[in-house]
Nucleic acid binder design. Structure first.
Length: 167
DNA sequence: GCCAACGTTGGC
DNA sequence: GCCAACGTTGGC
């Protein structure tokens, strides 16, 4: 399967790209939407690229890049009564919710705001720019990926020198 | 903090 | 299986 690309939302107050930089790898836990669940379980694969999106932020936007390092597996936080993501209806013998593991790749020197995405030619059909689209795990096309990475790296170039990145 | 757009739940 | 009520998401 060729490498594919995704956008995943996280509230930076809960878990930000800087948290992922520190942790290096994280479980993408707590997704409780069936459409997103299906992507995590069936579509997203090791090696795929992830745009790390800060939602409910000021401003919201793409903060950096991660990569998938573990395919979908049951989200154990659903089984934990102490977890904020606890779901008593998820049975360990037939898990309802899934997660993947992602690893830090890079943080953009400056966030690419949603408003910029909405104004950028070539991103007209990008899911995150659509009004009313709340899906927290979304597919991204190869071309959208290319454009957003260029925006993120260019944004940094205008403000501060960017250290050599591995990719 | 507001509220529009969605998704889910539950009565019938 | 409809749909009203309710809860959540997430931009503004």
């Amino acid at each position: 399967m060729a490498k594919r690309y995704w956008l995943m939302k996280s509230e930076p107050d809960v878990y930000s790209i800087e948290d992922l930089r520190r942790d290096e790898v994280c479980h993408w836990e707590g997704v409780r939407n069936y459409q997103a669940r299906n992507l995590l379980r069936d579509q997203i694969r090791v090696g795929d690229g992830v745009l790390f999106y800060h939602s409910n932020a000021k401003p919201p936007g793409v903060a950096g890049v991660a990569k998938v390092v573990k395919n979908g597996y049951p989200d154990h936080t659903a089984f934990d009564p102490e977890s904020p993501y606890h779901d008593p209806k998820s049975d360990p013998d037939a898990p309802r919710w899934f997660m993947v593991d992602v690893a830090f790749v890079e943080a953009f020197p400056a966030l690419v705001p949603l408003a910029t995405l909405q104004q950028t030619a070539g991103l007209e059909d990008m899911v995150v720019t659509k009004k009313g689209m709340r899906l927290s795990v979304q597919p991204v096309t190869r071309e959208e990926w290319r454009i957003v990475l260029r925006l993120g790296r260019r944004a940094g170039k205008e403000r501060a020198p960017r250290p050599r990145e591995s990719r």
